[in-house]
């Protein structure tokens, strides 16, 4: 227990917290949720197969953009820029570090993992287990301030994912086609846009940095729109973890032949 609540002069109460509710439950659930995604995403990123459905042009977001000669034919939408990749480099290596950085420096995820993983604090008015605390004043946590750059790249990746979702309206004979996979890809990309645009950095860039909204009516409208999304940033953060895993799982199952795609057109 830290010296803070036991500091001289403060009320002598020899317990970490007097809270009677289950304050430990939200951080536990957060830990389980984050661990599930990290394990799933790591395994899938390094798996190196079942990421492309050639008949319907479904490409999982974990492998987009695929830009190496290791990519199965058809999956490299933007060309093969480099040669074969060794197995320890994921085929989505171009976007994955930036997407990871975007979520690691996200203001919501920071709250989530500072509370649950680092327990700083575990819950409100529950003493944290660390003796010292310097917050985001020093390296490495001062690097959280680069969030806006990850946001810029995440915007580009969202455009790529949108392109992937559009070219997936494909049938085996080469014409237009539509199946359940398209619906899943489309929902995923809409949610990714909502999460990306609801970002606090986006809110700042859209208009939050201004002092005079009245002098910038268009940016004020943009800021208002982003602010409405921003209220749902936490929900969107979790929803997109779910849609990313579900989208990838569906593509994997179809690509491996475990299930067949439900076709509408």
């Amino acid at each position: 227990m830290t010296a803070g609540i036991n500091a001289p002069g403060r009320a002598r109460i020899p317990v970490r917290s007097l809270r009677t509710d289950r304050w430990w439950l939200p951080p536990l659930i957060t830990n389980l949720g984050l661990a599930t995604f990290v394990i799933y995403a790591t395994v899938r990123s390094f798996m190196g197969e079942w990421y492309w459905v050639d008949d319907y042009h479904y490409l999982t977001p974990f492998y987009s953009p695929c830009i190496s000669e290791s990519c199965v034919p058809g999956s490299a939408h933007f060309g093969e820029w480099i040669g074969e990749l060794p197995g320890w480099i994921p085929m989505g290596f171009l976007a994955l570090p930036f997407l990871l950085g975007f979520r690691l420096t996200c203001y919501y995820y920071r709250k989530a993992y500072y509370r649950s993983v680092w327990q700083s604090p575990t819950a409100c008015a529950v003493a944290e287990p660390h003796a010292k605390y310097s917050g985001e004043t020093r390296f490495p946590l001062i690097l959280q301030n680069v969030h806006r750059y990850f946001f810029y790249v995440a915007g580009i990746v969202a455009v790529i994912n949108t392109y992937d979702a559009i070219v997936a309206f494909h049938s085996p004979d080469g014409g237009f086609g539509m199946g359940l996979g398209n619906v899943i890809l489309l929902i995923n990309v809409i949610m990714l846009w909502a999460y990306t645009l609801s970002c606090h950095s986006c809110r700042h860039i859209a208009g939050g940095r201004l002092k005079h909204f009245s002098a910038h009516p268009v940016r004020y409208k943009l800021w208002t729109f982003v602010s409405k999304l921003n209220v749902r940033h936490m929900q969107l953060a979790w929803i997109t973890l779910g849609t990313l895993m579900l989208t990838d799982l569906y593509v994997m199952l179809v690509a491996s032949g475990a299930i067949s795609d439900l076709r509408f057109v």
Binding site: K111, S120, G135, T137
Partner: peptide
Amino acid sequence: HGLGYCNITKC
């Protein structure tokens, strides 16, 4: 004012 100390845990 030490804004960098804040780790936005929203308590």
